Simulated assay, not measured.
Amino acid sequence: MNAKEGIKILLVDDEPHILQFLEMGLTGEGYEVKTALDGLMAINVAKEFEPHIAILDVMMPGMDGFEVCKMIRKSGAQTSIIMLTAKDEVEDRVKGLTIGADDYVIKPFSFEELLARIRARLRNQFPNLFNEVTYGPFKLDDRRKEFTYNGRILELSPTEYELLKFLVMNHGIVMSKAIILDRVWGYDFLGEENIVEVYIRSLRDKLGDKQHQVIRTIRGSGYRVDFS
């Protein structure tokens, strides 16, 4: 089947113009979308709709996004939850992840970034929905934990695999060391940021990326995967 056919996304935000923009964009991408303007409506829609992905705004009057997240998790639904927050604070991210959120996006965000987050959540939580997926010169088979680059199978450690997968799925987006550590190693990782450099160097060696044209270093910002 089409990779997006039958994939259901619930959007929850108290700002109608944001809901309309995201609904149009995601529907145009081929997803089945339902919306809710508040937390109570979101809970009711989620019960009937059974979405694969729920995108929840944190700051809503009455029942906020954190409470909706807890209610969805309490219901036992297999929904993957992405939180939208206007606050770039560690406490908010930790709280969301602690109560059961799977990812978060900080406002303002680009639509392409949200799409990348959605794709990553679907690949991680619902791999049975997909066959082998192609990203430029990369082919990813998450069920077999196998990466192919330009027709060549890469011999990767589990951490190298997860790091390359994160970067490739978010291709074109600059990822800081802090975000990479958070997403790949986990927010409770207590080691040094330099571990990212070590793994990036190893990936470049295995890709034959001597000129750093595949995994680019964006000075002062982080790393970005580009497809030629």
Score class of each variant (00 low, 15 high):
Gly76Pro: 10
Gly76Val: 00
Ala77Lys: 11
Ala77Gly: 00
Ala77Met: 14
Gln78Val: 02
Gln78Pro: 09
Thr79Cys: 09
Ser80Trp: 05
Ile81His: 12
Ile81Asn: 12
Ile81Met: 11
Ile82Trp: 11
Ile82Arg: 03
Met83Ile: 15
Leu84Asn: 01
Thr85Phe: 12
Ala86Met: 04
Ala86Arg: 05
Lys87Gly: 04
Lys87Trp: 10
Asp88Asn: 14
Glu89Ser: 10
Glu89Gln: 02
Val90Trp: 05
Val90Gln: 12
Glu91Thr: 08
Glu91Asn: 06
Glu91Ser: 10
Asp92Gln: 07
Asp92Ser: 08
Asp92His: 12
Asp92Leu: 04
Arg93Ala: 11
Arg93Met: 03
Arg93Leu: 06
Val94Gly: 02
Lys95Cys: 02
Lys95Glu: 15
Gly96His: 09
Gly96Ile: 08
Thr98Val: 07
Ile99Arg: 08
Ile99Glu: 11
Ile99Leu: 13
Ala101Ser: 10
Asp102His: 13
Asp102Val: 07
Asp103Glu: 15
Tyr104Arg: 06
Tyr104His: 11
Tyr104Asp: 13
Val105Gly: 05
Val105Leu: 15
Ile106Asp: 13
Lys107Leu: 04
Lys107Cys: 10
Pro108Ser: 05
Phe109Asn: 10
Phe109Pro: 10
Phe109Trp: 12
Phe109Leu: 12
Ser110Met: 07
Ser110Gln: 14
Ser110Pro: 00
Glu112Cys: 02
Glu113His: 11
Leu114Asn: 03
Leu114Cys: 05
Leu115Glu: 13
Leu115Phe: 11
Leu115Lys: 14
Ala116Gly: 07
Ala116Val: 03
Ala116Glu: 12
Arg117Thr: 01
Ile118Phe: 09
Arg119His: 08
Arg123Gly: 14
Arg123Asp: 13
Arg123Met: 08
Asn124Leu: 05
Asn124Trp: 02
Asn124Lys: 03
Asn124Gln: 06
Asn124Thr: 01
Gln125Leu: 08
Phe126Pro: 13
Pro127Phe: 06
Asn128Cys: 00
Asn128Tyr: 11
Asn128Trp: 05
Asn128Asp: 15
Leu129Ala: 03
Leu129Arg: 04
Leu129Ile: 00
Phe130Leu: 00
Phe130Gly: 11
Asn131Leu: 10
Asn131His: 07
Glu132Arg: 07
Glu132Asp: 11
Val133Lys: 07
Val133Asn: 07
Thr134Trp: 09
Thr134Cys: 01
Tyr135Asp: 07
Pro137Tyr: 13
Phe138Pro: 09
Phe138Ser: 09
Phe138Glu: 13
Phe138Thr: 01
Lys139Asp: 00
Lys139Trp: 00
Lys139Pro: 02
Leu140Asp: 09
Leu140Ile: 09
Leu140Tyr: 14
Asp141Pro: 09
Asp141Tyr: 09
Asp141Arg: 02
Asp141Gln: 00
Asp142Gln: 04
Arg143Thr: 04
Arg143Asn: 15
Arg144Ala: 15
Lys145Leu: 06
Lys145Gly: 06
Glu146Tyr: 04
Glu146Val: 06
Glu146Lys: 15
Thr148Tyr: 14
Tyr149Leu: 01
Tyr149Thr: 04
Asn150Val: 10
Gly151Glu: 10
Gly151Phe: 10
Arg152Ser: 13
Arg152Met: 10
Ile153Gly: 03
Ile153Asp: 12
Leu154Asp: 14
Glu155Gln: 13
Glu155Met: 03
Leu156His: 10
Leu156Cys: 05
Leu156Ile: 01
Glu160Tyr: 03
Glu160Val: 04
Glu160Met: 03
Tyr161His: 11
Leu164Gln: 07
Lys165Asp: 14
Lys165Cys: 07
Lys165Glu: 15
Phe166Tyr: 15
Phe166Leu: 07
Phe166Cys: 12
